[in-house]
Simulated scan of single mutants.
Amino acid sequence: MPRTILVVDDDPHIRQLLVFALAKAGLNTIEAEDGEAALAQARVHGPDLIVLDINMPRMDGIEVCRRLRGEGDVPILFLSSRDDEIDRILGIELGADDYVTKPFSPREVVARVMAILRRVSGRPPEVERAATALRHGRLTLDPEGWQAQWGGEAVALTVTEFAILRTLAAMPSKVFSRDAIIDRLRGPGFALTDRTIDSHVRNLRAKFAGHGAEDLIETRPGIGYRIGACGG
Rank of each mutant, 00 (worst) to 15 (best):
Glu31Tyr: 02
Asp84Trp: 09
Gly72Cys: 00
Leu18Ala: 00
Met171Tyr: 09
Thr167Ser: 15
Arg118Met: 10
Val120Asp: 01
Tyr225Gln: 06
Arg220Tyr: 12
Thr132Leu: 13
His45Lys: 10
Thr167Leu: 13
Ser121Lys: 14
Ala154His: 11
Val120Trp: 00
Pro47Met: 10
Met1Gly: 10
Asp142Asn: 15
Tyr225Val: 06
Arg123Ile: 13
Thr167Cys: 14
Asp215Gln: 09
Ile50Trp: 04
Gly212Thr: 09
Pro221Glu: 02
Phe104Cys: 12
Leu134Asn: 12
Val159Thr: 14
Arg138Asn: 14
Pro2Tyr: 05
Leu192Asp: 11
Glu144His: 14
Ile86Leu: 15
Arg58Ile: 10
Asp84Cys: 12
Arg112Ile: 05
Leu117Val: 03
Gly231Cys: 04
Asp48Thr: 08
Tyr99Phe: 15
Val51His: 00
Ala111Asn: 09
Arg205Phe: 04
Ile182Glu: 04
Arg66Asn: 10
Arg129Leu: 15
Ile76Met: 02
Pro103Gln: 03
Gly152His: 13
Ile89Asp: 13
Val19Met: 05
Val201Cys: 02
Glu126Asn: 11
Leu68Asn: 01
Gly187Cys: 06
His13Cys: 09
Pro106Arg: 15
Ala40Phe: 09
Arg166Lys: 06
Met56Glu: 03
Ile5Lys: 00
Arg69Trp: 11
Val19Phe: 02
Trp146Gly: 13
Leu90Gln: 15
Ala170Thr: 10
Ala23Lys: 09
Ile182Cys: 05
Pro143Thr: 12
Arg112Asn: 04
Ile181Ser: 02
Gly26Leu: 07
Glu71Trp: 05
Asp215Leu: 10
His211Gln: 14
Cys65Lys: 02
Arg220Trp: 12
Arg226Gly: 15
Tyr99Met: 08
Ser105Tyr: 14
Leu192Ile: 08
Lys102Asn: 06
Pro57Ser: 05
Gly137Ser: 10
Leu216Lys: 08
Gln149Ser: 13
Leu141Val: 03
Val201Gln: 01
Arg66His: 11
Ala191Val: 02
Asp183Asn: 13
Met59Glu: 07
Arg166Ser: 06
Ile62Ala: 12
Pro47Phe: 07
Gly61Trp: 03
Ala156Tyr: 03
Ala191Pro: 01
Glu63Trp: 07
Leu27Trp: 06
Ala32Val: 04
Glu218Ile: 07
Gly232Lys: 07
Ile30Asp: 02
Met59Val: 09
Arg195Ala: 05
Ser81Thr: 15
Val19Ile: 09
Gly35Ser: 05
Phe208Tyr: 12
Asp215Glu: 12
